[in-house]
Write a protein that binds this DNA or RNA. Structure first.
Lengths: 403, 403
DNA sequence: ACACGCAATGTTATCGGCAACATCCTTGGT
DNA sequence: ACCAAGGATGTTGCCGATAACATTGCGTGT
């Protein structure tokens, strides 16, 4: 029998619990049994035995119970009083100041524990003028790249004792960037990070006066900085090498939106690498990172491209392009090879699985945060090893079809 | 092409403060941060003297250009002085207090402008005890669902004058949740949001003492609350209806990880709807939302499933399943229909394009934020219309192959 | 024994706003 | 013209922490 009686806590329960200390029944872990490969017995019980009436809205529509205000949080003054010392002693203890007599230390420690003291970072940063918050602007979180970068950044920040304020916005709208920047800089920030670099973003960052360190994350810098291990220096060359070795001589690129540095970077590298090898580019089609744009770029072509290999700006675009090709009767990779960039988790499961360049976005995000924090703390940046982009050969690329 | 000159604003004033404090590194377990001895060389800096341009980290290797130090941010006192009024008058003006003489108003306005005053929210929330920050915990940002929810939430919060503190973590690790919760609640938060609801997450929220409103976002509530417009009530029934109409009688479900409420919800609804129609479930295979798990679920099957329709827990899983099927010589949809849930942007470009249920994640995120803010402000929630899930029929579903 | 010095702790000022209360200056009614 | 009422504005204290300065107490050199 299947115990999938989910007793889902509504927020009401939570509120109650908070206010009254009532111990909620813990959610059962019986659900684990679903795993049992094979059958899941139909459950016979009604969804919510205990709760008859339907809730018209998601996540409970109950009125917020006017919460009796929970006891105020303890301050160092409360702690000091409880311990019979001065607040400054408490403060010293909290900062790990060494010169405190053991007995005093113990009293403080006990009081701290008893009152469940938690520091008020607001007050701290008001006085000290420094906070441990990092503002981060990003765009299109739903794409793998940006979101991975954000995750990495968030994790790195947390590890360093910082909190990342992630603001997701339309990085192409100057106005929105401006507004967001305006909003977040009112909070005491230790630094600001731009995780998506579009022209608008860099422009906004250049024209805004920050009084804290800022950092612009950009994979794309490498075309400009000549960094040796980046996508443009390593990843794309490897990709082109791979295709060239398969005998491809004529290529097509479906680009990302030009306002993105990463997109321009990829175009640049594509061009440069072809040229360096004496290969031919049949053109660069506009795209916007989306599968849709890849599909349409190909579908809109008056006739099939002469190119035998298509380099898409990212995996999604490659996906769209592949579908359009298949619909026109092109076999991949027998007739045309298609490759992407990014290596999103789904690309191994495309049909055919996609040859692409793996990028470690998470590390990239971490690196940015470390950099920024180094600036903030005037310390050396923690050394980060961002693994270089790596060619991943799958089945979407094959020997060039030579007439 | 564009000169990417990163102008990093220097922060001399902050530098000064940091230097003055010299504490051996002391680890405060409560705060979770490490103070490090601040080291400072007055701007003769060549931070990496010996190091040439081999920059190990992406994103500009340039040194922060020491810019002319921007004066400290103006406070209401500065403004007051400049305007020749008292700081309170400035404060009143800022709050839109009506009773201010036009001429006074103008003076203030001018001073405000001149000094480029920007309120210090830290100070504000210190005094008022209320902030406009919402902490949000989420997981797997790189998945479309969570990231869209996060984006919606972030946007909604911003529109309401709040900032969303997005913390991305492993929602399955109780420890990590605990730690994150600990960290973010030290900041003066107006409320806390759980955007991913796993068992660990709800458990953590139940056992933590918040003194602010909390809200757990959960599409999944509807199986339990009987909400009439949710995925389980509308979306999945529509999906099953669609397949039933095509003549399918035997189904297979590839589930999401059972610790996720959304996953359980989908299983429940799948079971319930089949049963209600007298259809047959050939089983529920374990999965974890990923394309890989979809692929493996099918690939590991000793023989092809008897089912003629496969309902995957989400689109990625469906993608993986489709590839595995195709590799086993199954045609989609002629032999077996495959459907997903979520309608990620790529699913129209799968091969074949995926029949799925569209979910408006962004709205869901917005709704959660509105809810929370309503609680925070003890107001009625702004009415949000979350569009009900909607069946999207594409080519991966077709008439059942009847022997 | 006395001053001195440093260690341990206490006291006061401060960060930038907000709120309560105080004060001054208009008005208007008579 | 006078006073009350209220409108406009100024003053003071507080939020919770940190920083600078002040004080106590004890050991030590002479």
């Amino acid at each position: 029998m299947l115990p999938i009686t989910l007793r889902v806590k509504s927020q009401f329960d939570i509120v109650m619990q908070i206010t009254s200390q009532r111990l909620g029944r813990s959610i059962d872990r019986r659900v684990g049994m679903v795993e049992r490969a094979g059958r899941l017995e139909p459950r016979t019980d009604a969804p919510s035995p205990g709760r008859p009436s339907a809730d018209p809205v998601p996540g409970t529509g109950r009125n917020p119970v006017p919460r009796p205000v929970p006891a105020k949080a303890a301050t160092i003054y409360d702690v000091a009083q409880a311990a019979g010392v001065s607040h400054q002693t408490v403060s010293r203890f909290l900062k790990g100041f060494a010169g405190i007599r053991p007995e005093t230390r113990e009293k403080v420690e006990r009081a701290l524990d008893e009152l469940d003291y938690r520091p008020n970072l607001t007050a701290r940063s008001l006085k000290s003028g420094r906070s441990h918050r990092i503002g981060a602007l990003t765009h299109e979180l739903s794409n793998v790249g940006p979101s991975r970068v954000a995750e990495g950044a968030s994790a790195a920040a947390r590890e360093c004792g910082y909190v990342l304020d992630l603001v997701s916005l339309d990085a192409r709208s100057a106005g929105e960037i401006e507004r967001s920047l305006d909003l977040i800089t009112q909070h005491e920030l230790a630094g600001v990070l731009a995780l998506s670099s579009t022209d608008e973003m860099t422009r906004a960052f250049e024209t805004t006066e920050f009084r804290v360190p800022v950092f612009i994350d950009a994979e794309s810098d490498d075309a400009v900085t000549g960094r040796r291990s980046g996508l443009a220096q390593v990843g794309i060359p490897a990709l082109i090498d791979h295709l060239a070795e398969l005998g491809h001589r004529s290529f097509l690129h479906i680009a990302g939106p030009p306002m993105w540095r990463a997109a321009r970077n990829r175009i640049l590298a594509y061009d440069r690498e072809l040229e360096a090898r004496g290969l031919h580019s049949a053109g660069v089609l506009p795209g916007d990172w989306s599968a849709r744009s890849g599909y349409e770029a190909i579908a809109a072509l008056p006739r099939l491209p002469e190119a035998t290999a298509i380099v898409a700006a990212n995996d999604q675009t490659a996906l769209g392009a592949m579908l359009a090709l298949k619909e026109r009767g092109v076999r991949i990779p027998e007739d045309i090879s298609v490759v992407g960039i990014d290596d999103i988790p789904e690309s191994p499961y495309f049909d055919p699985p996609l040859t692409t360049v793996h990028i470690d976005f998470e590390m990239q995000g971490r690196a940015s945060v470390y950099r920024l924090i180094a600036q903030i703390e005037h310390a050396e940046s923690r050394p980060v090893v961002v693994p270089p982009p790596r060619l991943v050969v799958r089945r979407s690329s094959g020997p060039a079809a030579h007439a």
